[in-house]
Amino acid sequence: MTHNTPLSPRPLRRHSDVTRRVLTAAQLRAQGVTAAETNEQCRPGGPWQQILPGVFLLHPGPPTSEERLHAVLSYAARSAFRETPAAVAGVPAQPNADEPRPAPRYSDAVITGLAALTLHGFSSAPPLPSLDSIDVLVPRMRRLRTMGCVRIVRTPVMPTPSYVTGLPVAPVPRALADAVAELSDAGAVRRLLTEAVRGGHAEPAAVVRELTQARLLSRPHVVDAVETLLAEGRAIAEDHLYRMVRAYALPDPVWNVDLRLPGGPHLGGLDAYWPEQAVAVELDTRAPRQEDDALWSEYARKREMLERLGITVVHITPKKLRDSLEQQATVVRTALMAACDRDPAAYVVVVPR
């Protein structure tokens, strides 16, 4: 074949969107384009280009961000763009540009890291065009190499992806862990973790769990960022608790207090306490641990001691306050209403924290 030999126009005339501009060698073969024809189209100055091994961009200019993402997934996935039989059998002489086309399906490949955070809407993550590489999660046993704009991240267990503009994207906690693993800038790490919580993208506990599993908490700048993350998470949870009391017309409690027995030991701190009903609310903002959770043991010990004194303790997580505020208000209201049916609680001293 010479450079002047025309190529069948079939593939070119169908590729009017990104799923038609980025194709693998297998997909081109399925549409009747031979390897020789593909190589001819990808010659220097030709109309196509090979963007990654086995992945082709069907125009000569630089790829868009969307095209890069599809190319990365096409390279890393076990299979991509599973077509209906009619779509691969042939192309009509005059294709309809509005013809429905199956959404791309990528098996065992998920966008993660900074690219995933950008897709999730993080303002502190860099724009896609500025990323030199795009992280993609694949199963540990896959035989793939980091190549071009693809950085392969292996994992023993693939996460259940979210879908952003039809692309499989790692959940925010996992994407954060993969991004933080590559960042040495303490400020950038802190901004990402803070935005995850402040923007409602993830619960602090879920983020810390992923950072722990990735063994990143041995890095001082990550530990510092996690402390900021947990403080931010507690502040948001406290704000939700205040809002719950106001919005659902609960009686005003005393806020952020310590309880003590008269002349006796310290019983522990509480986020809200109704002295007349002897009902307490405690926010469960613990960071997850891989081993025995000493802090949970402390929570349980305090709760047992208070309940022996006749004080009802309601534990609420930040996630429950965020997702089911009315339900949590009902739980607290029920505990307050049940106070009249209980024996009077022991007298305790209430002091501000």
Rank of each mutant, 00 (worst) to 15 (best):
D135C: 12
A97S: 14
Q94W: 06
T146R: 10
M158L: 15
V169C: 09
T112H: 04
R78T: 15
V136N: 05
L114A: 13
S124K: 09
V88C: 10
A86L: 06
D98S: 11
T84Y: 00
F81C: 06
T165F: 07
S107F: 14
P100L: 15
H120I: 05
S133K: 10
M147V: 14
Y106K: 07
T146H: 09
G166H: 02
P92V: 07
R82K: 00
A86F: 02
H120K: 03
D132C: 01
D135H: 11
L131D: 01
P159Q: 06
L119Q: 06
T146K: 07
P161N: 09
V172S: 13
P171S: 09
T155K: 08
Y75R: 12
S74E: 12
R101K: 12
P156Y: 01
D108E: 15
A76I: 11
I111H: 03
P100E: 08
A175P: 04
L114N: 02
E99R: 13
T165L: 11
R142E: 15
A170R: 04
A170E: 08
V172H: 10
P156L: 00
V138N: 03
G113M: 13
C149E: 11
V88N: 05
V157L: 13
A76C: 15
T118A: 13
T84S: 05
P95M: 02
M141R: 15
P171C: 01
A71D: 14
Y163P: 00
P102M: 08
P126V: 06
A125N: 05
R82Q: 05
M141E: 11
I134D: 00
V136F: 01
Y106F: 12
I152M: 02
V153T: 05
D108I: 04
V150Q: 00
S79I: 05
V164T: 12
L119D: 05
E83I: 00
R101T: 15
C149M: 14
M147G: 04
P127T: 13
C149Q: 12
S123H: 10
L73S: 10
T146G: 07
S162K: 11
V157G: 09
V138S: 09
G90Q: 04
Q94L: 13
S162I: 02
V136M: 03
A86M: 00
A97P: 12
G121P: 11
P159S: 09
L137R: 06
S107L: 14
V91P: 01
V157H: 10
Y106S: 02
S133E: 14
V172A: 10
R174F: 01
P85E: 05
V172I: 14
A89R: 08
V157N: 14
R142Y: 15
R142Q: 15
P104W: 02
T155H: 07
Y106W: 08
R78E: 11
A115Q: 09
T112L: 01
S130V: 11
Q94A: 13
S107W: 14
L128H: 10
A170S: 11
A116H: 09
A115N: 08
P129F: 01
Q94T: 08
N96E: 13
E83Y: 04
P102N: 01
R174G: 07
G148C: 03
L137D: 08
C149V: 13
D135E: 13
A116G: 10
A103Q: 06
F81A: 12
L144A: 11
P171A: 04
R143K: 15
I111T: 07
T84R: 00
